[in-house]
C-alpha cells in the first residue's frame, strides 16, 4: 500500500470558532494507481492533500505513506519524506524564483541525493523545456512553469505524487496538454498519483475518482 488514510479528522479555527474540514476520511492508493480527489470549494480537498504530504498533521486518524506513519513522525522525518518519497505539484507552480529552470528541475532530486542528470535531461526534453534551461521562472509562461514544476516533482523519482489543481491556473488547451504529459510520465515511473481537482472532466481522465462533500468521502 502506497498511501493509507484511516478516519482522518481535521479542523481549523476560523473567526474564533473551530470549523471541521475533514470528518473521518479514509482512502487508500496503490503503486501505479491514479486517483482524482474532487469536491466543491472548501470541501477539504487541499487539506487532505497537505496531510498526505506531511505538511500538516491530522487531529485524529492515521496516515501511512510508504510504511511511514505520519502521526508519529517528527519534523525532520516529515521533511525527509517530502524530499524523497513524495513529489508535490502546486496550482501556482511555486518554483524557486532565484534559480534557473535547470536548477529548479534538479532541485528536489539534489536535495534528496538522487540527482540523475540523464533523467533530468530526458524529463526536460519530454516536457519541452529544451532551450529554456538558463531562464528564470519569471521569464516563462504559465504552462512552461507548470511543466518545470512537474519535472521537479518527477526528477527525484518519488513513490507518490500529490498534485493540487495542477492545471487550475492554465487555460483549457494548455491544461490538457500538461495533464497528458503528467499522466504519461507518472504511468512510466510507476508512481501513485493523488490529484485534487474540481473539474469532473479532468477527474474522469484518472483511474479512480473520489468525491469529498462536507468533509466526508461520498
Amino acid at each position: 500500500m502506497l498511501l493509507n488514510i484511516e478516519n482522518v479528522e481535521k479542523s481549523h479555527v476560523s473567526g474564533g470558532s473551530r470549523v471541521a474540514v475533514l470528518r473521518g476520511v479514509s482512502l487508500s492508493l496503490e503503486a501505479g494507481e491514479t486517483v482524482a480527489l474532487t469536491g466543491e470549494s472548501g470541501s477539504g480537498k487541499s487539506t487532505c492533500l497537505h496531510l498526505c504530504a506531511g505538511l500538516d498533521r491530522p487531529d485524529a486518524g492515521r496516515i501511512v505513506v510508504v510504511g511511514c506513519d505520519l502521526a508519529r513522525a517528527d519534523d525532520a522525518t516529515l521533511a525527509g519524506l517530502r524530499r524523497g518519497t513524495v513529489g508535490l505539484i502546486f496550482q501556482q507552480f511555486n518554483l524557486i524564483p532565484s534559480l534557473t529552470v535547470r536548477a529548479n528541475l534538479a532541485f528536489q532530486a539534489r536535495l534528496s541525493g538522487r540527482d540523475d542528470p540523464d533523467w533530468c535531461g530526458e524529463l526536460a526534453m519530454r516536457l519541452g523545456l529544451e532551450g529554456l534551461h538558463d531562464r528564470y521562472p519569471e521569464q516563462l509562461s504559465g504552462g512552461q512553469q507548470q511543466r518545470v514544476a512537474i519535472g521537479r516533482a518527477l526528477a527525484a523519482r518519488p513513490a507518490l505524487i500529490l498534485a493540487d489543481e495542477p492545471t487550475g491556473n492554465l487555460d483549457e488547451a494548455t491544461g490538457d496538454a500538461v495533464l497528458d504529459l503528467m499522466l504519461e510520465l507518472v504511468a512510466e515511473s510507476g508512481a501513485g498519483l493523488l490529484m485534487v481537482t474540481h473539474s469532473p472532466r479532468l477527474a474522469g481522465r484518472l483511474g479512480r475518482r473520489v468525491r469529498l462533500t462536507g468533509g466526508r468521502l461520498a
Binding site: 519534523d75 521533511a79 517530502r82 524523497g84 508535490l88 518554483l95 524557486i96 528536489q108 536535495l111
Partner: peptide, 15 residues
C-alpha cells in the same frame, strides 16, 4: 511565499 515551497520540498522550518 519564497520559503514555503522550499519547506514543502523537504527542508524543516528550523533549518
Amino acid at each position: 511565499p519564497q520559503l514555503a515551497p522550499v519547506w514543502a520540498l523537504g527542508l524543516t522550518r528550523r533549518r
